[in-house]
Simulated assay, not measured.
Amino acid sequence: MKNVRTTVIALALTALSAGSVFAADMTSKTRDQVRAELMQAQRDGSLIADGQTGAKFRDVFPGSYMQPAPASTTSRDQVRAELMEAQRNGTLIADGQTGATFRSIKSN
């Protein structure tokens, strides 16, 4: 029993000292900085929508917030080369509604 009490006291003291260290590292922000951060969090949906689960608004309502654009792995020169090749082959899309290519339109 004495061992458990010593462990609990040691954990409590550790938690208190760790809390004061984290509090000392905090820098004070101006009122305008806090407002700007709040507005940004509202725009990007990073505010917590559900306190029990910790879900953010962008997770609960994904259609309401823009998703980050995926990073392209293709270089500009590769894209240009693919475009030139598609123009030569006639595989460019000629009709956006039907998806018909130039080659299929010429052959009809």
Rank of each mutant, 00 (worst) to 15 (best):
I48H: 05
E37Q: 15
A41D: 13
R43H: 06
D44P: 00
A18M: 13
T27W: 01
S46G: 12
T30G: 02
S46T: 15
L38H: 12
A36W: 01
R31C: 03
Q52H: 07
A49I: 03
V34H: 05
K56A: 10
G45H: 02
M39Q: 14
A55D: 06
G54A: 06
D50W: 00
L47G: 01
D25L: 15
R43I: 05
G19P: 07
A41M: 13
G51D: 10
A24D: 04
Q40E: 11
T27K: 15
F22L: 14
D50T: 00
G19H: 13
D25W: 11
D32N: 08
E37H: 05
L47K: 01
K56H: 07
A49M: 06
G51L: 13
Q33Y: 04
L16F: 13
K29N: 06
L47S: 00
Q33D: 11
M26S: 09
A55P: 01
T53C: 03
K29C: 02
D25I: 11
A18D: 05
V34L: 14
K29W: 02
Q33S: 08
A55S: 08
S46I: 02
L38W: 13
A49K: 03
E37T: 04
A41E: 11
A41P: 07
S28M: 07
M26A: 13
Q33L: 03
S17E: 08
D32T: 11
T53L: 03
G51I: 09
A23G: 12
T27E: 10
A41S: 14
K56F: 05
D50K: 05
V21L: 15
G54C: 06
G54K: 03
I48W: 05
V21C: 08
D32V: 06
S46E: 14
G54T: 03
D50N: 14
S20E: 14
S28N: 07
D44A: 00
A18F: 09
Q33R: 03
Q33T: 07
D50Q: 06
Q52F: 07
S17R: 04
M39C: 05
Q42V: 14
G45Y: 01
L38N: 14
A23M: 12
M39H: 10
A18E: 05
G45I: 02
S28I: 00
M39K: 13
T30W: 03
M39N: 14
S17V: 14
F57Q: 07
D50V: 08
L16M: 15
R31K: 14
G19Y: 11
T27Y: 02
F22W: 12
G51F: 09
Q42C: 08
A23T: 11
D50Y: 07
I48S: 08
K56D: 03
M39F: 11
Q33W: 04
G51C: 05
K29Y: 02
G19C: 15
R58H: 14
T27N: 07
